[in-house]
Amino acid sequence: MSEEEVLVIEARPASLRGRVRAAWQYRHYYPILFKEITMRKFRNTLLSYWWLILRPLIPVVIAVITFTLFIEIETGDLPYGMFFLSGYICWHLFQSTVRFMSRTMMWMRSVMKKMYLPKLLIPLASIGVPLVELAVTIVAILVLAGYYYFTLDTFYISMSWQLLLFPVGLALSLIFAMSVGMVVSVIALLMRDIIFSIAYVMQMTMFITPVIYPLSSVPEHLQWLFIAFNPMTGVIETSRWALTGFGSFEPVWLLVSVVQISLIAALCLTFFTRAESYLSDVA
């Protein structure tokens, strides 16, 4: 009893600052939660950690086979594999984070009922699996670039300052995904349907995002629709240009994405903050 800890619990409307402070105060929970949530994914699976490699790579293989052998998509000098992967890295980070996070709150439900747990820590601790999958896709593009270097004698990854924009794209995708995932995970506690539907929603939205095709292949008078209503468009176009130099860099597109994602993140955080006390009452 050398050091006295004083804890004051007060009834007051939830504030983001309070939630952040609580999460910080209980930061020693973070590694435990992180481990628990990350390991949970592989429980009762035959292939266990191999899923980390398989899950991001299967769509890559399917897309590359389909769009090089059966349907051709005009990607200029850039081989389709490089084209697809350079945009898919951000997209995969986005969709795997949202899909993974949709379940994590549910997993922690029994813990939340029995002991205090700042709920903000749960979405923050849910990024282990998506980040490993991100690493897998990055390794994949490096391997592919190496393959083309030896066969076509061209290194398709741009080696200049523009590469610095790639991490920006990744960060934007992650922030966007975590904001959406936070809200989805809360809704999933009350309505499990959203977990089933989110997989389809992600598949469908991929088709209205320039992942398998370049934005330039979209009729010019429709391009603004992609930019205005899909924050991922600017992110993917920018990061693809940053990685491979494909297309052109439009600062306005990136700016639009940044503004959209910041607004969405603020909204989602507010939602999460205010939903927290309601959740502990019904959980």
């Binding site: 800890e5 004083v6 804890l7 619990i9 007060e10 009834a11 029995k114 205090y116 502990s280």
Partner: peptide
């Protein structure tokens, strides 16, 4: 008191380390 639920009104002050057992086998 164990902070599993938020109060609607009022306040609680706890001085010292708290150990709680709300349910057996919890956690």
């Amino acid at each position: 008191l164990a902070r599993v639920l938020d109060p609607t009104e009022g306040s609680v002050r706890l001085e010292g380390r708290v150990a709680s057992l709300l349910e057996l086998g919890a956690g």
